[in-house]
Design a protein around this nucleic acid. Sequence first.
DNA 1: CGATGTCTTGAGGCACCTCAACCAAGGTGG
DNA 2: CCACCTTGGTTGAGGTGCCTCAAGACATCG
Lengths: 242, 242
Amino acid sequence: MIKRLLLNEESIHCANCMLGHICMPHGMGSEDIERLAELVKERIRIPKGEFLYRIGHKANAIYSIRTGTIKTHIENHNGHSQITGFFLPGEVFGLDSMATGQHLSHAVALEDTEVCVMHTDDLATLSQQLPPLQHQVNRLLTGEISRSHQQLLSLGALRSEQRLASFLLDMSERFTRLGYSSQEFRLRMSREEIGNYLGLTLETTSRLFSRFQKEGLIQTQQRTIKILDRSALFNLLKTEHA
Amino acid sequence: MIKRLLLNEESIHCANCMLGHICMPHGMGSEDIERLAELVKERIRIPKGEFLYRIGHKANAIYSIRTGTIKTHIENHNGHSQITGFFLPGEVFGLDSMATGQHLSHAVALEDTEVCVMHTDDLATLSQQLPPLQHQVNRLLTGEISRSHQQLLSLGALRSEQRLASFLLDMSERFTRLGYSSQEFRLRMSREEIGNYLGLTLETTSRLFSRFQKEGLIQTQQRTIKILDRSALFNLLKTEHA
DNA sequence: CGATGTCTTGAGGCACCTCAACCAAGGTGG
DNA sequence: CCACCTTGGTTGAGGTGCCTCAAGACATCG
């Protein structure tokens, strides 16, 4: 079951959280960040595999990840589902439901995960007094738009190998930002989830991993990925065919 | 060439624009709408085929359509491009560049088009005094996120015929909202543009139009579409295979 | 009226999917 | 501690949905 944690004086606040350079406070002065304590009054622990929220649930907050990984996905009439995003520590998700008061996607923990809760009405009042916060919210919203547009291009215009290459390079960049190695990292999602995200089947995804390994682009050990030839991956994105 | 029009006393303002029920003022009281005159001080005419803006250009405004149609698209390293949206009268676009100050997509007029210009800094200051405006901006941003997520599902999980059916139903709904017939409307985009948007080639798109016509779902006369069997189109989305 | 862009239709190929078997790793219970 | 099961991943064989290439029909417009 998911577990709510109320924050008190001793709790770690945004001001000294390691993830400030990625998360909400990004780009704010230290006196502004102090005020974010008003914003994050609660954290939630979600065990691996559990839902933080589901489509249709009342929405009154957005979330940033303290530890763990979250996937968001949507579904349609015939039960087919599409993963719309993977989120790593420091990243903010749940933005799609900010204006409607209802969640438009599901959010599931891919491993034991803890998230910071920011209530939308607190966000509205505080960002009115704190222009940098308003600006940061806008950055997050437009960032999400831009990311989905890039993903549209990936699904609409790229071949399978290019989609996977672009996925791996994206993950590598995000792990780097977290202070991990850019060469070697452990993915938290299954082949099926990667495939779903990229509009491919799990078999095609698995075959691509094998092929990339055989061609010396990467080395895989289950979900641990080692990037051996980053520029080759990058060049894949530049080729028109084959 | 595109042409800027400064608005004066006699110009039509948001308060008596026919599109208020779709556009920016949507859901605002009449006294709030009066203040939007401060926001829209300018309109721009874009002839068919011309760019309103390009990727990388300085961005300082978002736009709503008064008359005409706009497509937005992005491109990647290898020159492949992906249409990210079509926009009809009353609809607001250009949101992806709201926070960065730089356009992240191209915007092209599919026919002679006139747009209302809302400068982002005016928007920021006015929405601070006018909470309903702030809320409307958030609605637009999250609406754009939600729309791209739906499109991700379309590209990632649906077969070609389902993508086209869903496209036609979406267009029909939007034309209806404009006061046009929900059964018959004239698309402003080519088969190639529809295909690009749906992640298909123009030939596949054309074949699908022909097939839908042969099966009595629609009737086509060039870009004029008549929907003959709406529920059949809808049922297409519910089928798992074939 | 020709010229040009847009759309349609056909034939063939290939990238990715489907179906299916097998394997590896980890957990569980006797 | 080992048989057993489960879950996730790999690999193969065959099928097909969509793409590519190509030709022709239609609109639209100078």
